[in-house]
Nucleic acid binder design. Structure first.
Lengths: 234, 234
DNA sequence: CGAGACGTTGATCCGATTCAACACCCGTGG
DNA sequence: CCACGGGTGTTGAATCGGATCAACGTCTCG
């Protein structure tokens, strides 16, 4: 057993049953016997910021659960503009659509260095067919995706740029220590549907008026009360 | 049998197994024995434009499949503004979230006179537990919801108002006869995140330049080629 | 017929885009 | 070691598009 675990670690093959974040993961509810249905390797992969997981239209061989880091899902417009439609963080799943369709529906790009579990589609399909304990998790994942999409529409695509930036900063803030790692102005703009200049101006303004305090390298201390006021007005 | 069907028709209780739109509906894949698991009545209900199905936060007792008509799902913002986040049409399901959460997450309002099947949550939960044939349909529904949400973000919330209105009109057009029933300018605005005046101006402009031809009562003939050009620019 | 809802249009104002310039950081190579 | 160049963030000035406020036309229904 010990040997096998070590061998797996070396080869990058995961031991899902003992996964450290299993309570957050797709396989949270599986029982011992369910894991015996997995007959293809689940790989742990590490990706650097800027790496691409897959592109829109690619054949969907894998689902990815995010162990750490941040992934952005992007779609392109006829005129070439791009829009980030969702962010995935610890516990989220990228590529759920391959259980329904043969191809991916977004570009998935690493936004902050990430560790992922790469799960062959077959494995999820088989588990989904043979054990009911995966279903609820799948429904949950879809639900959170829809919920995030709806929130982005109402909170990040409605109102003035200023309040939208404020809402985004609040959403990216750690509510315990009020700190906040932002992304590049370009990515923030692609989330909000505004230009990078506008984003830059607003964040610079937040810094000047003290709503954000620079902690270095896109790391800020956020005055959530003040930001909430800005988020609500206009 | 015949008698029972008639009795059901009178009482509004549905006979799902023989439903005319079953191929589109949630129960499309169910088999004869599955239907015996249904021990609570599924009601057919008719609603008029303006009627409300449920509100955000209401306890979710029912799911609704749309047989005909159009339902809008709305969310409200802190500042009181509202945004329509999705439209449901024949075959779509309202209230899926009650399989995951106790309460509804939107206001569901009838936009065009609708016929609906009102399905008790228990029924869907039980079927979902006891027959695998409902799972795929449920995953499919979630998938279409996410897909529509993503499209709204990229197509209806990005770019100039003019191209967004054009994209919306195209999306609402019947591709067979190029005709198109629009909603009130206010609702169109709430879909696009612009004011009713802007919407009105743009549609009036489309009429003047011939991209839309009035067929009476918010019914138009759409020049899809011209509209597609407008949708792509800017 | 009159009231109210809805659509249209005009004039003005404000906010976001655009285009441009510049500051800054960091890694590379002379 | 510093000079250089590219990427990123910031800022300014001019422009444009959509919001706003207000008025009016049209339709429907009581």
């Amino acid at each position: 057993m010990e040997k096998r675990a070590i061998a797996n670690a070396w080869s990058g093959v995961s031991n899902c049953e003992n996964c450290g974040i299993r309570h957050l993961a797709l396989f949270a509810d599986l029982e011992h016997t369910d894991f015996e249905l997995i007959h293809k390797p689940i790989m742990e992969v590490e990706k650097k910021a800027g790496d691409r997981l897959y592109g829109e239209g690619d054949e969907g061989q894998f689902l990815y659960t995010v162990r750490s880091g941040v992934i952005k899902l992007t779609q392109y417009l006829p005129d070439g503009g791009q829009r980030i439609v969702r962010l995935l963080r610890t516990g989220d799943v990228a590529g759920l659509e391959v259980l329904v369709n043969p191809t991916y529906e977004h570009y998935a790009t690493v936004l902050r260095d990430a560790e992922l579990c790469q799960i062959p589609r077959d494995v999820v399909e088989r588990l989904n067919r043979e054990t009911p304990r995966l279903h609820n998790q799948l429904l949950n994942r879809w639900h959170t995706a829809v919920k995030q999409a709806d929130e982005w529409l109402t909170e990040l695509s409605t109102g003035s740029s200023k309040s939208r930036v404020a809402r985004l900063v609040i959403g990216l803030s750690d509510k315990v220590d009020n700190s906040c790692y932002l992304f590049s102005r370009e990515d923030l703009g692609a989330i909000l549907g505004v230009t990078t200049e506008t984003t830059s101006r607003i964040i610079a303004e937040f810094k000047r008026e003290g709503s954000l305090k620079d902690l270095g390298k896109n790391h800020f201390l956020a005055d959530l009360v003040r930001l909430q006021n800005i988020a609500n007005e206009n």
